[in-house]
């Protein structure tokens, strides 16, 4: 008997006399009067920051806020000043020296400062973690209250990779002292456009 059968049979041996149905997951939950404000404080609490673009282009915003950044790559069509092409290399390794990655996210979640990043056009998911800093672009109307709404919006009918990113990478493994910037980006800014 294969291990697969052994395991499944062992589980089947113990079929319970009664089972309960799967519950509804969209339970009554917190709704934020001002989602933008909630998102901003949530993101700040995890070490990131949120900005709303006003009367300027993304190019101008980057030029102003990321002055001395040498290597900038982008998966966002509205940013046109990349110094390197993210999809060009055949392996992600040449992206290790990226100073800033301008990436797109589908929507933001007010309760926890997370953004949903799933971009089939981005060839190397490692980019999100190799870059020293992240600038995440999201249409400003795409903000939901909680993870309940968030999971209504995502699907994996096709294969792929998607991640919720909430702030920069961090650790508190040394005496519980929070250090921003563990293995991934040391800074994450969410830009609503």
């Amino acid at each position: 008997m294969s291990s697969r059968e052994t395991i499944l049979n062992n589980i089947k041996k113990n079929v319970p006399s009664s089972t309960i149905d799967l519950p509804e997951t969209n339970i009554p939950h917190t709704i934020y009067e001002n989602k933008d404000e909630k998102f901003t404080t949530s993101l700040a609490s995890v070490g990131g920051n949120a900005v709303w673009l006003k009367d300027e282009s993304i190019d101008e915003f980057v030029a102003k806020n990321y002055k001395d950044f040498e290597v900038i790559v982008s998966t966002c069509k509205d940013y046109t000043c990349s110094t390197k092409e993210a999809n060009k290399p055949n392996t992600p390794h040449p992206l290790e020296n990226v100073d800033l990655a301008v990436i797109t996210a589908e929507f933001a979640v007010a309760e926890n400062g997370a953004v949903w990043v799933k971009n089939p056009d981005n060839r190397h998911r490692a980019l999100y973690f190799l870059a020293t800093q992240l600038l995440i672009i999201i249409p400003k109307e795409n903000i939901v209250d909680t993870m309940h709404e968030a999971y209504e919006r995502i699907e994996f009918d096709k294969s792929g990779y998607g991640t919720f990113i909430s702030g920069p990478s961090k650790t508190a493994d040394i005496e519980q002292s929070l250090v921003i910037g563990a293995h991934g980006p040391t800074d994450a800014c969410v830009l609503f456009v």
Binding site: N112, M147, S159, F164, S166, P168
Partner: peptide
């Protein structure tokens, strides 16, 4: 409120 990364691997 959530971990920094909640990654869904389907490929």
């Amino acid at each position: 409120p959530i971990t920094s990364y909640t990654s869904h691997f389907h490929a």
